[in-house]
Amino acid sequence: MGDFLKLVQNENMKIYRRLRTWIMFAILVLLMMLFGVLFYMGSSSSPIGAWDAVDQLSFLYFLVSIFSVVVAADIVAAEFTWGTIKLLLVRPWTRTKILVSKLLAVLLFTLAMSAVYLLANMAVSFLLFPDIQSGVFPKGSGGPLGYIMEDLLYNYIDLLVITIFAFMVSTVFRTSGLAIGLSMFILFAGNIFTMLFHPTRYAWAKYMLFVNMDLGQYRGGQVGPAGMTLGFSAAVLTGYVLAFLLIAWFVFKKRDVAA
């Protein structure tokens, strides 16, 4: 029946035809430029290399996480708010396919936003700090680019988990506010939880979502607290993500759409 990719195309249209989305991209690029200039002015006494600037500017990736969460939190809930969910559900597509098309559109958005982030970061860094020599990055292991990309990958996985969490809350509660709020809470309160319930003190704590989200802690084969490894955290995260998706799917499939 029809072409599934057209559903994804529809979801993309609903994301990119909104002014909001372009404001997000603009904020990301503008802040990147702003902080680049600030670093440039602050580094007149001790100059830094372009790759060092890329690394320093990478804290702005949290914006990508926030914007991804906003889009994911809205994509199902908004259809309920607008009443347009009825439009989608009375067409010859199963609810599963509708939900998957929305999830795919969100994932494409996270990729697009990450790509814009990376391009903006590199462009700002290399334009302002054309001196490519860097004293900070160690030799070997793929050089600075490899290091930056590995870092980005860890951050992206962190983003994915939180975005899919927002997607689930959006689907289950049909309110984007709650989805955004809870996701931000996890994003920023995670460290506090990790401190309160540290895996070295509580055996069960290593199964918590928060303590596993930062895969960067295993960089270079390091072992985390209480013997946690990269494989362990990856497995726990996969488990959580699958659970989020199953809950979202089950609720979306079963729900009676009234009002």
Partner: peptide, 24 residues
């Protein structure tokens, strides 16, 4: 079903296209 629901930030034509993509 009840009110005709549309995406208000899209044009009428874009709404039609959105709907058309869901039928072969």
């Amino acid at each position: 079903v009840e009110n005709p629901e549309m995406y208000k930030f899209l044009t009428g034509y874009q709404n039609m296209v959105h709907y058309a993509r869901m039928s072969p």
